[in-house]
């Protein structure tokens, strides 16, 4: 099964803000740590190396194109 790229949340604003809120009051370093922990937790939950690789490729390409 490929990485899902269409919307999957019925209330996308709510999940987006839940993630943003988690960073409130954190230093940049703490934010980085929070994100790292989230990535590891979610990657483990997905449990599919192909999906994780696909997500990495898309996210990395978007970062590179911004530079």
């Amino acid at each position: 099964m490929p990485l899902r790229r269409d919307p999957s949340f019925s209330d996308p604003d709510r999940i987006y803000n839940t993630i943003i809120d988690a960073h409130r009051g954190l230093s940049d370093a703490e934010s980085l740590s929070l994100n790292a922990g989230l990535v590891l937790l979610l990657a483990n939950h997905i449990g599919d190396e192909g999906i994780v690789r696909e997500a990495i490729a898309i996210a990395r390409a978007s970062v590179m194109s911004m530079g």
């Binding site: 370093a29 980085l32 740590s33 790292a36 922990g37 590891l40």
Partner: peptide
Amino acid sequence: GAGARAFRDAVLGLVETEPFARAF
């Protein structure tokens, strides 16, 4: 680098309570 260190520290932070992190 800071990114790699953040992941390493995240594993150390999760490892006591989260079994999956022990594997990392």
